[in-house]
Write a protein that binds this DNA or RNA. Structure first.
Length: 566
RNA sequence: UGGGGCAUCGUUCAAUGGUAGGACACAGACCUUUGGAGUCUGUUAUCUAGGUUCGAAUCCUAGUGCCCCAGCCA
């Protein structure tokens, strides 16, 4: 049984090295981090990396991590997203305690600081249009040129900015800009915009504001207000760091945080851009943000992925600055490791084939004792009813089996797990030649699954009593995208959508113990994979989602086309 | 032709001037009342070229490749 964490505890990434050094050298007394999502979508597995990093670092060094909703753009943000973010962070296993903040909490302070900058001649109101601002900004290789409004009197900027706030101007009429350097090689420093006019309802501040700060003018100061020591973000913000520092250096902020950047997570067969996830939802390629095929935390949760598996995965992949695409198999391995250790075993037949045990007494039911988890004896056992008529998996029988097929076949004896050995004697077919029933006999001396004479069948099958089985719908899931790198090589992203990402199976049978399976709790259907009862389940109408398959070496042989080799 | 980053097994992360290692994936073997799990073994890597050094993935120089930046998004 594997109870180890997937990586050695002494392994330290560059962020943790920096934090440790800062603590050791007294650059900070304790560590304070923050996870700062914008509430404009649902959190996904990529966010999990950031959450685990920020909360993990805080935890490990005895500090604290704030949850801050970065709600500076009311046209994209919604309360639904705020709620889902809090749910998902908690579910992942982290707690921000009292430290829940919103960038919008700081709007008044931010506004005052903006006024400070105008007063000291370091900011001005610009009347240029968006197009003109772009033209004046120059290009990557050519410097920009100053706006004609750059040197307008401080009093005029002050007046205009107040009137922008008061709502006197329409969207886009003017902006507030920092006066830095129009010739800076870093475009972010070419008089970056601090405030824009937006007449929109904000989820928290309503219509109190007509101007909203741009990310750059809000983030560092919010960090400073909260006493963040290490502001950890992704690589694309590296170019913003000089601006982050400029604001913090030019404003009377209460602390001086520092920004550090790491490479965001990418996964094969997966897309993690919020824009694309939003399209998948809006264009109904999936049924919602929590569709079990979505890489969102709510989708993964619904699919049956345990939070612990996600955390282990994040530990496994580490933190660095090199762009990378992690193979999704690594994620699946982390999840299987947790599930193998923790999930209860159950019997379920997805594609049923009737078996009649001719020498088994009619009307008799025996309760077979079956281990709940052979990896964890403390999980105990349950009893599973066994009777004369059973369902087994259609795939577990072949009339004319190839060399390496060890399961049931005419004349062959196999073990029914935790029950009896059975031997197939007759194959019943319908008019089309389809196998509809197997006539078998059982060996009464093999009760529990072992023979007194020590003979051992080469295969063990799962089964369910026809009389006692409970009907269920089972939804099989595969990668949402066929290509490991969706939308590359000139293909449209949506061309790479896997048409078979969901297969719905009706007429499946599960053992009685599954009749009241708790929603979201993942169990192992023996020999098949991990499954979790879906929220669409109603009493008498069970629905299970396949979380992941178990590795199946026969399926692998088949896929390799090797099953016929003698 | 500007600025900022990054280059180590197929993938990902280590090695912080001293034997290039782990995990995933792959291959084989063992074991098995899940063809699961587990155990063991194996294959495969320092972007290139110079230089410094007893010794370089690590330091220096010059190249090459890839990523990010010209939103009133974050």
């Amino acid at each position: 049984m594997n109870t180890q964490t997937p990586s050695s505890p002494e392994r330290v990434d560059f962020i943790r090295e920096i934090v440790a050094a800062d603590l050791r050298d007294g650059r900070c007394q304790s560590v304070v981090t923050r996870f700062p999502p914008e509430p404009n979508g649902y959190l996904h597995i990529g966010h999990a990396k950031s959450i685990c990093l920020n909360f993990g670092v805080a935890q490990e060094f005895g500090g604290r991590c704030n949850l801050r909703l970065d709600d500076t753009n009311p046209v994209k943000e919604e309360q639904e997203y705020v709620d889902s973010i809090m749910t998902d962070v908690r579910w992942l296993g982290f707690d921000w305690g009292e430290h829940l903040y919103f960038a919008s909490d700081y709007f008044e302070q931010l506004y005052e600081w903006a006024v400070d900058l105008i007063e000291t001649g370091k900011a001005y109101v610009d009347d240029l249009s968006a197009d003109e601002i772009r033209e004046y900004r120059g290009t990557l290789t050519e410097p920009g040129k100053p706006s004609p409004w750059r040197d307008r009197p401080v009093e005029e900027s002050l007046d205009l900015f107040a009137r922008m706030r008061a709502g006197e101007f329409p969207n886009g009429a003017r902006v507030l800009r920092a006066k830095i350097d129009m010739a800076a090689p870093n475009i972010n420093l070419r008089d970056p915009i601090m405030y824009r006019i937006v007449h929109a309802q904000h989820p928290r501040t309503g219509d109190a504001w007509c101007v909203y700060p741009i990310y750059d003018f809000a983030h560092g100061q919010s960090d400073a207000i909260e006493g963040i020591t290490h502001s950890i973000c992704t690589l694309e913000f590296q170019d913003h760091r000089p601006l982050y520092d400029w604001y913090v250096d030019n404003l009377p902020v209460p602390s001086h945080p520092h920004q550090y950047e790491f490479a965001r997570l990418n996964l094969t067969h997966t897309v993690l851009s919020k824009r694309t996830l939003l399209r998948l939802v809006n264009e109904e390629h999936v049924r919602g943000w929590d569709d079990p095929r979505m890489p969102t935390l709510s989708g993964l949760r619904r699919r049956g992925f345990p939070a612990e598996g996600i955390r282990d995965f994040v530990t496994m992949i580490g933190v660095a600055k090199a762009d990378s695409v992690v193979e999704v198999e690594m994620f699946e391995h982390a999840v299987r490791t947790v599930l193998n250790r923790t999930s209860l075993r159950r019997f379920a037949v997805l594609d049923p084939l009737k078996v009649v045990i001719e020498n088994y007494p009619e009307g008799l039911t025996e309760e077979m004792e079956v281990l709940n988890n052979p990896e964890d004896l403390s999980a105990g056992s349950r009893s599973v009813p066994f009777a004369r008529e059973l369902w087994i998996e259609r795939d577990d029988f072949m009339e004319d089996p190839p060399k390496k097929f060890f399961r049931l076949a005419p004349g062959r004896e196999v073990r029914l797990r935790s029950a009896y050995f059975v031997t197939c004697h007759e194959v019943v077919k319908d008019a089309d030649g389809k196998v509809v029933e197997l006539r078998c006999t059982y060996d009464p001396d093999t009760r529990g699954g072992s023979a007194p004479d020590g003979r051992r069948p080469k295969a063990t099958l799962h089964w369910v009593s026809a009389e006692h089985a409970v009907a269920a719908e089972v939804r099989l899931y595969e990668h949402l995208f066929n290509s490991p790198f969706p939308g590359t090589d000139g293909r449209d992203l949506f061309e790479d959508l896997n048409p078979d990402s969901e297969t719905v199976l009706r007429g499946c049978f599960v053992e009685p113990a599954l009749a009241d399976a708790p929603i979201g709790e993942t169990v192992q259907f023996e020999r098949l994979g991990y499954f979790a009862a879906d929220q669409d389940s109603a009493s008498g109408a069970l629905v299970f989602n396949r979380t992941l398959t178990l590795k199946d070496s026969w399926a692998k042989l088949q896929a390799q086309g090797r099953h016929d080799t003698a």
